[in-house]
Amino acid sequence: MLREPAADHGIRAERIQKRLGGNDVLRGVDLTVRPGEILSILGSSGSGKSTLLQCLNLLTVPDRGDIWVHGEKLAIRAISQQGGQARILDHRQVRRVRASMGMVFQSFNLWPHKTALENVTEGPVLVKGIRRNAAADLGRHYLAKVGLSDKADAYPRHLSGGQQQRVAIARALAMEPRVLLFDEPTSALDPELVGEVLRVMAALAGEGRTMVIVTHEMAFAREVSTRAAFMHRGLIEEESPPQEFFSSPVSSRLRGFLASHR
């Protein structure tokens, strides 16, 4: 193909397929994320949202399909007819690309043996080669940004779920990524802790960052996204600006989904 999709910026994924444990989890998904865009991905449980998100930074290697990140095509070998697994061809490229995409997980995934600050500085030090002192300043800056200046030396087990997730966001930010990926960042939180995380995310959205957010928080998605997508059974079924998406959905399944999540 001669065309250079999303030249220079953003993410483009084409015809992404993934089969896991006998299920066709992704069945040829096309997805574009333009710079500055805030894309919300919604869909029922098991529709493939997490898998799609993990394909974007190759935590999961798609069986088939192409991915461009910031204009660079990711070198992956598709699954072979003989059953050879799909795999990464250029590990350096993938590490570079991952470093440019921050990821926030549903279950926080903070490293338990490191303090909040160390969780945040580990990436910059190891991956970007920033010196420890400079990284600590950087780490404190981002911890302050998520409102946790006073928790720098606390270990994850001494933090609430909301605080842990904010540290995880700071950890993603400290790599100064061009895109942020969120996989249901508030689903594992007690209801009273959801707000503090959403507020941090809304503030990030306000800075004009590029974000992809898998979420079940309808009101939040409607508020902050510039575009919303609905996944169903491994495909994106509907995709539109939030007003249309939430007020006049086309697909009956999306209508049903929105009705049941009101």
Partner: peptide, 12 residues
């Protein structure tokens, strides 16, 4: 999840 978080920041 610990390993995925490390991969996601680009560690080798």
């Amino acid at each position: 999840g610990m390993i995925e978080a490390a991969q996601a920041v680009g560690m080798s």
